[in-house]
């Protein structure tokens, strides 16, 4: 008979995390085994977070592209050749990279505008990615402290 119910991926992964933390890691006798076990559990938690929002990478890319679009007229009118060339880059990440580099080489008000538009967004994206991967950071720091 076919299964009447298929457990969802998150439930399976959470079971793996709980079993690793409660049953397997405490039984391990080697330092490296416990170290790795803690990080495997954290990797699973990270995976659960990523699975819950599969559109996040595309959304971040789109947000950056839209931010660049708001800057486009100002850059094109600025006469800054380095910044204007950045608009021709193949991806929003490349464009943003080149715009911020151009801003570092520029002392005009354009530099401050590029910074003011791109930095808050990039920092917000960084913080969201850091929050998603925080189980890894916790496990990593705990492991380092225990190793001493």
């Amino acid at each position: 008979m076919a299964l009447p119910f298929t457990p969802d991926v998150e439930t399976i992964l959470r079971s793996c995390v709980a079993t690793l933390e409660a049953e397997i890691v405490p039984e391990l006798t080697s330092d490296w085994g416990r170290y790795s076990g803690n990080l495997v559990a954290a990797s699973l938690e990270y995976a659960i977070t990523l699975l819950a929002d599969p559109e996040a990478p595309a959304r971040r890319r789109q947000e950056l592209a839209e931010a660049i679009d708001t800057l486009r007229p100002r850059v094109e009118a600025s006469g800054n050749a380095e910044a204007a060339a950045a608009l021709e880059a193949a991806s929003p990440y490349e464009t943003a990279s080149k715009l911020l580099v151009a801003a570092q080489n520029d002392t005009s008000p354009l530099a401050a505008e590029l910074h003011a538009v791109l930095h808050p967004l990039l920092e917000q994206q960084l913080e969201a990615q850091l929050a998603a991967s925080s189980p890894l950071l916790r496990a990593f720091v705990t492991n380092m402290q225990e190793a001493r």
Binding site: S36, V40, S43, E123, L126, Q129, S133, L136, F140
Partner: peptide, 26 residues
């Protein structure tokens, strides 16, 4: 494919990048 590679390449990297970005140099 060891899990410490994932930790260093993601969260540890991002913490360092956050500290770099928050340094008032920018």
């Amino acid at each position: 494919p060891a899990p410490n590679m994932l930790a260093i390449g993601t969260s540890v990297h991002l913490v360092a990048l956050q500290r770099l970005s928050k340094t008032t140099i920018f």
